[in-house]
């Protein structure tokens, strides 16, 4: 049984998603929060959920800052960002901060469940708008703000550059191919495409970590 937590300040939306997920036999969803800070407090003493659905605009610490903190301390918690609109800038920022995926809040409840399952199976999804941002990010040199030499060196680490295969997927997405078409073209399954996308997100997060170090001084570390 996988545990899902929700951090969302809109009580109705939060409760609706919670009740629905809690009714699913494969999930439990009882711990919900209206801000990042109490969630962090809870993690200090209690067990950690497998997946967190988190709003971007939260009172106090916003979702993106909060995500950086959560991911820096509890890298194993998968976080799915919730947003009302497909604001590709915010979504991209949250992916850089360590999100495993994102969902529009008005996504139907069964689809929300499906997305959580994709993430639990090690996959993620990506839209063309995000794919383009990912491509620009990885192709431009020096994509991290110059903070410290260590961070720069970490940045040069080849492990964190995209592989040919990942690049192919991103280009395919920018070209507007569906996952199925990409899978057919590369002769891999849909799940493999999703797993590759997840790995691209992971690299995005690793490469953006220099920022985490400095900014999180305000809050954690």
């Amino acid at each position: 049984m996988k545990e899902i937590s929700i951090i969302e300040d809109n009580e109705k939306i939060r409760t609706l998603i919670q009740k629905f997920l809690d009714n699913q036999p494969e999930f439990t969803c009882t711990r919900v929060f209206d801000a990042v800070e109490p969630f962090l407090q809870e993690l200090k003493t209690k067990t950690h959920p497998n997946v967190v659905l988190m709003d971007i605009d939260l009172p106090g610490m916003n979702g993106i800052e909060g995500m950086k903190l959560i991911k820096s301390q509890y890298p194993n918690i998968e976080i799915i960002m919730l947003t009302i609109y497909h604001d590709s800038h915010k979504i991209f920022d949250s992916l850089c901060a360590g999100a495993s995926g994102y969902l529009l809040k008005h996504t139907s409840l069964p689809e929300i469940k499906e997305s959580i399952e994709v993430v639990l199976n090690g996959g993620s999804v990506m839209s063309p708008q995000i794919a383009r941002k990912v491509m620009t990010y990885f192709s431009s040199s020096g994509h991290t703000p110059d903070l410290s030499k260590e961070a720069k060196e970490a940045d040069k680490n080849a492990e964190n550059e995209l592989t040919m295969r990942e690049r192919e997927i991103v280009i395919g997405l920018v070209d507007g191919l569906s996952y199925k078409m990409i899978g057919d073209r590369m002769d891999i399954s849909l799940d493999t495409v999703r797993a590759h996308i997840r790995n691209i997100y992971r690299k995005l997060h690793v490469n953006s970590k220099a920022e985490v170090i400095a900014k999180s001084l305000r809050g954690e570390i």
Binding site: N10, I13, I84, Y85, K105, H106, S108, L109, P110
Partner: peptide
């Protein structure tokens, strides 16, 4: 828009529920 969007989202989710 955020507020209205949130309300409509609530509505959509409630209908699902």
């Amino acid at each position: 828009h955020d507020d209205v969007g949130a309300s409509l989202t609530e509505m959509a989710l409630q209908a699902d529920f």
